[in-house]
């Protein structure tokens, strides 16, 4: 008996982590799934079971559909941009240039600041009256090309993308750098002996060896991009109109607008939207391995 307990003792070590996971993830998730079938307003003690009404309402609301499309568009663009920029920076800073450590620090630094604070800083810089961007452009002689990009539906989302890519390329770069530094040098030496050039080495040695780093970056960036909230709130608050309203901003507004049951249903939809590409990429990469 004692032997059996000892043999299974290690399982108890996972108990604190499991309890935390259960209390702060599984339990709220299950409660949320239940809540999504009610019309709870988030304040009163009353709530009534409404079945799938909230889910049906989401797909019938043109604003909600627009919000979903904006989120998907952003969710596609941001991971691509962050990974391209992050990988480019990693390749550049993995070389034997001077002051690479300092440059890595500068690239990584924006990511340690809250996205909300960063968003407000950029919003101030992009202000049409006295914003730093306008002043710099005027100083450089490009003042005529300045416009309040955040006030236009066709440019506001791109600005949000730009700010996020600038802020979060650093962490992607660090993961790629770690991946690059773990590539055995012998592989490059063999490739050199075989007459491979820089691009061939990249294609045949570096990229295949970076697949684990790529997987981590793509999955975390997809999750981050589909739930983008802070920078949107700070930069445009979903505007102009609903042009940059993402699902998480929509959820927040619905929840603050006394539609907690509906907001929870939308959150469940967002969870499914996030899970689909994540599972797809994860499985595709597992197969390749």
């Amino acid at each position: 008996m004692l032997k059996k307990i000892k043999a299974n003792y290690y399982k108890c070590m996972a108990l604190p982590a499991f309890l935390l996971f259960f209390c702060f993830f599984i339990y709220p998730l299950c409660l949320g799934i239940g809540m999504s079938f009610t019309n709870w307003d988030g304040v009163s003690a009353e709530k009534t079971f409404v079945g799938l009404w909230n889910f049906r309402e989401f797909f019938r609301d043109s604003r909600a559909i627009h919000t979903m499309l904006t989120t998907i568009k952003y969710g596609l663009l941001e991971p691509i941009c962050i990974n391209v920029v992050g990988l480019g920076l990693a390749l550049f800073l993995d070389s034997k240039l001077k002051m690479t450590n300092l440059m890595r620090t500068f690239v990584y630094l924006p990511s340690v600041i809250s996205a909300l604070v960063m968003g407000y800083v950029w919003q101030l810089m992009l202000r049409p009256d006295g914003g730093a961007v306008r002043q710099v452009m005027e100083f450089l002689g490009f003042g005529a090309h300045f416009k309040a990009w955040l006030a236009y539906p066709d440019s506001a989302l791109w600005i949000i993308l730009l700010v996020n890519v600038w802020q979060f390329s650093g962490p992607a770069m660090v993961i790629y750098l770690a991946g690059l530094q773990s590539v055995p040098q012998e592989l490059y030496e063999v490739a050199t002996i075989d007459g491979a050039g820089y691009l061939q080495k990249l294609k045949c040695v570096t990229f295949p060896m970076l697949k684990p780093a790529f997987q981590i970056n793509v999955i975390t960036n997809i999750i981050g991009a589909l739930s983008v909230h802070d920078s949107v709130v700070a930069l445009t608050d979903g505007g102009p109109g609903y042009a940059t309203e993402t699902i998480s901003v929509y959820i927040y507004r619905m929840s603050a607008g006394a539609r907690a049951g509906y907001a929870t249903a939308v959150a469940i939809i967002l969870l499914l939207i996030t899970m689909l590409p994540t599972i797809f990429i994860y499985r595709a990469m597992q197969k390749e391995r």
């Binding site: 299950c30 409660l31 949320g32 239940g34 009610t38 003690a45 009353e46 009534t48």
Partner: peptide, 14 residues
């Protein structure tokens, strides 16, 4: 899990 989900959607009245 089912119990928790049902608790979440329970109609309440104080």
């Amino acid at each position: 899990i089912l119990t928790t989900v049902l608790a979440g959607c329970k109609t309440t009245d104080v």
